[in-house]
Design a protein around this nucleic acid. Structure first.
Length: 159
DNA sequence: GCCAACGTTGGC
DNA sequence: GCCAACGTTGGC
């Protein structure tokens, strides 16, 4: 009989605007459903590749300064994004039905706020981080895969 | 506030 | 299926 293959933990970077929902909001709320993502690649990551236990660099975008503010963890696998059913929401999706949702999101739980906030500038300057997607010009994707090496390095640096 | 980069929409 | 127009993201 075939044994089910265990999911190997993965590492991600997730962007959020701190004015809207930053690391302090997550700390206060403990968990949040990552609603409102309306990009197919980001959706596919959440739907197909992110699993409970995956670790997350929580990134502040559109901030002064932008950068990594802390750590979070996937606390629930993807479920339909409820905002797509809400006519009053900016994230309403007219193509979606309860039977056939279009958008999905994972639930994320707070872990740590970094003692040492790591600014985008610092990541750019650091030769250790030269492969990271977040430093690439024009990289707007709000959910990005991160290598284990980069994750562990930044975790150690930030905590 | 500017604007480069990129995703989406819609006419054809 | 192409691609121009438009909208959004997000650094600066």
């Amino acid at each position: 009989m075939k044994t089910q293959q265990n999911h190997t933990p993965k590492y991600w970077l997730m962007k959020s605007e701190p004015d809207v929902f930053g690391i302090d909001h997550l700390k206060k709320d403990k968990t949040t459903w990552w609603e409102g993502v309306r990009n197919y690649l980001a959706r596919n990551y959440m739907m197909n590749e992110m699993h409970v236990g995956d670790q997350i660099l929580f990134y502040h975008s559109n901030a002064k300064p932008s950068g990594i503010a802390g750590l979070a963890v996937v606390s629930h696998n993807a479920e339909p994004d409820q905002l797509q059913f809400n006519k009053k929401s900016a994230s309403f999706e007219k193509r979606a039905t309860r039977e056939k949702p279009v958008w999905f999101c994972v639930q994320v739980a707070f872990q740590h706020k970094f003692k040492n906030f790591i600014s985008l500038e610092e990541i750019k300057q650091d030769p250790q981080c030269s492969n990271m997607l977040v430093i690439r010009k024009g990289q707007r994707l709000s959910i990005q895969p991160v290598s284990e090496k980069d994750f562990l390095y930044l975790k150690k640096k930030g905590l």
